[in-house]
Amino acid sequence: MTDEVRMVDMTLRDGMHAVDHQFTPEEMADVAAALDAANMDVVEVSHGDGMGGSSINYGFAAADTEEYLDAVVPELNDTELSVLLLPGIGTVEEIDMAIDRGADICRVATHVTEADISEDHFTYVKDRGLEANGLLMLSHMAEPERILHEAELMQEYGADAVYVMDSAGALLPSDVRDRVGLLADELDIEVGYHAHNNLGLGIGNTLAALDAGATTVDGCLRGLGAGSGNAQIEVLVGVLDKAGYDINPDFFGVMDAAEDVLVPMISDDEMPELDNDSLMLGYAGVYSSFLRHTRRVGEKYDIDPREILVELGEMEVVGGQEDLITDVAARLAEDRDAGTAAEAASDD
């Protein structure tokens, strides 16, 4: 097998969730330089929620997107630079700025059923001559046929690739095959896959996606990303190499980038692991970046984060609705306190 696979490292984008968007521009430059030296195909840089994501709702980043891009661009030689935008959070003004600063690829993400809010953004990216990728987030929340419909819209708007994003890490390998396979069969453009490891399937699902026809896949050094993290990219490089895929990154170089460059920057609290709270994200089907916000809110209201996540899953919240974590926790705390008061009353 000599299938070519493009690898996208998002340590400096999805990984921003794990560090509460507090990477410094210098840290980003060091990670980008190590990835460039390791022949990574693409690195993605921005706030975890995309350009324009720096906010109270998602957390202010330590620096502006402009500062991050200016720090990273000089470090990249052959590696391409990608930026992320979620329409509704950021606007074409941010795309414009990123292109001026040297972005090569713009990835435009919408909820899996809402692709039709992205037409302007694709048009703008294509008019400026960049590669445009469409990302359909929380793909577990729609059936394959619906995902195809949304992917076709993005294709029509000018996307060069469409990704099935398992933003909640909730898909099983058979779900991945159904979704990626249908898109690969029906679309004229490339199909990508983006994993989260909340059910322990980050690498396995990525293999299933490649097997079903994906040609571009996401990962992060040490898996550093929202929730329990993404597909661990140095592992993915080793696995894809063993499986006989044609990949560009250098195995030792990517391993060194992870262990020697990234790990010293990350505290124990920040390094994602597949703990009970992140397992619950995958089980309940909740957007992975809710994890750290839910823990903070859970602590404030003294509520088990898993209870909050289960409730959010039942409400079918989508990416971007982080403020509802407080809403749910406040309600659960009120119910609990009312229950305690009732018990106390009946004890009398």
Partner: peptide, 23 residues
């Protein structure tokens, strides 16, 4: 000022909800 909008396809449809943060 900053504004963010999300569309939620849940059924039955959600009521319009807004959060205002002021610093």
């Amino acid at each position: 000022g900053k504004a963010i909008i999300t569309l939620n396809p849940a059924e039955p449809p959600i009521m319009m909800r807004n959060t205002v943060y002021t610093m």
